[in-house]
């Protein structure tokens, strides 16, 4: 009961915040962004309570079924956003990306599996925490990277078209956005590497081999290689600015496909666990 109330409270808050953020950005209204920021905070508190409740109730890191995965992924995305907001309010523009993404994730989770699912034997492993924690840390960082990418593109376009910053003056300089974007790429890349490694060790215990070329594994590898390539493009070939920002926005799709897309379209992935909502 409390679960349901908290879930819907979060969804409504994130929905209203999304509307305010979109309106604020489209019509250059600073005030709306501020209100959105203050709406996200109570939603994040409710989200944290929900996340903690699920963890305490089952004794396992919330990663069982679509709703728990959505809750966890969204929690990391919003936690990063709130952290940035607390450190430097000028970076809170990433909320334009992270809040709607969390809203969509939670909506999808609620639609697929509204109530808690029993924990299947194959998920009961100490590796669950490590594997999923780093997977969600990576997802949260990459979501932020895309958020910064979007912010970069919007600000850059405003400067180019109007030769004035105006509304976008409240956000960091383009060079700083570029560096923040890269910082979170690095964070996500390392977290994803640990996710792949821990998943591989877990797979050995569960399925008997470190790597089985399962579609989810292949996409995780493809996505990691692409982010690795983007790091090389920046560090070695000097990619910067709009080109890199667009690439970062695009690369998020590879993570979304790996985490959620494959299990929707592929039937024979080992990563579809027994309890299906």
């Amino acid at each position: 009961m409390l679960d349901t109330a908290l879930i819907w409270f979060c969804i409504y808050c994130y929905a209203v915040a999304t509307i305010l953020l979109l309106t604020g950005f489209v019509f250059s209204k600073n005030k709306l962004l501020k209100i959105a920021g203050f709406l996200v905070l109570p939603a994040f508190l409710a989200h944290t309570t929900l996340f903690g409740m699920r963890w305490v109730r089952t004794g396992w890191f919330p990663a069982n079924g679509e709703l728990e995965n959505a809750l966890t992924a969204g929690w990391f995305a919003i936690a990063f956003t709130v952290y940035l907001f607390a450190r430097n309010r000028s970076t809170s523009g990433v909320a334009l990306f992270t809040v709607p993404a969390t809203l969509l994730l939670m909506g999808y989770g609620v639609m697929k599996a509204p109530s808690p699912l029993p924990m299947e034997a194959s998920l009961k492993s100490s590796w669950l925490l490590i594997h999923v924690l780093f997977a969600q840390l990576a997802f949260g960082s990459y979501l932020l990277v895309s958020g910064f990418g979007l912010l970069y593109v919007l600000k850059d376009r405003r400067i180019r078209s109007e030769n004035a910053i105006g509304f976008y003056g409240r956000f960091p300089a383009l060079e700083i956005i570029d560096e923040l974007m890269f910082k979170f790429v690095i964070y996500g890349f390392i977290a994803q590497a640990i996710m792949i490694v821990s998943g591989s060790i877990w797979a050995k215990e569960l399925w008997g081999s470190y790597w089985g070329w399962d579609p989810v594994e292949v996409w995780a590898l493809v996505s990691w290689l692409l982010y690795g390539l983007s790091i090389h493009l920046r560090v070695t070939l000097g990619w910067r600015g709009r080109r890199l920002a667009w690439l970062m926005i695009f690369l998020l799709s590879t993570v979304i496909i790996s985490y959620w897309g494959i299990n929707i379209v592929v039937e024979n992935s080992k990563h579809i666990f027994g309890v299906v909502s």
């Binding site: 089985g212 070329w213 399962d214 579609p215 292949v218 996409w219 590898l221 493809v222 290689l225 692409l226 690795g228 390539l229 090389h232 493009l233 070695t236 070939l237 494959i262 592929v266 024979n268």
Partner: peptide, 29 residues
């Protein structure tokens, strides 16, 4: 060269991507 790295990595990514479109023998029960 980094260009060669990029080319090889991109080709590998394309191959791995292809593996998701073409049903793989090992995944048949």
């Amino acid at each position: 060269s980094i260009r060669f790295t990029t080319t090889v990595l991109s080709s590998l990514i394309v191959v791995y991507f292809l593996s998701l479109l073409v049903p793989q023998k090992m995944l048949f029960p």
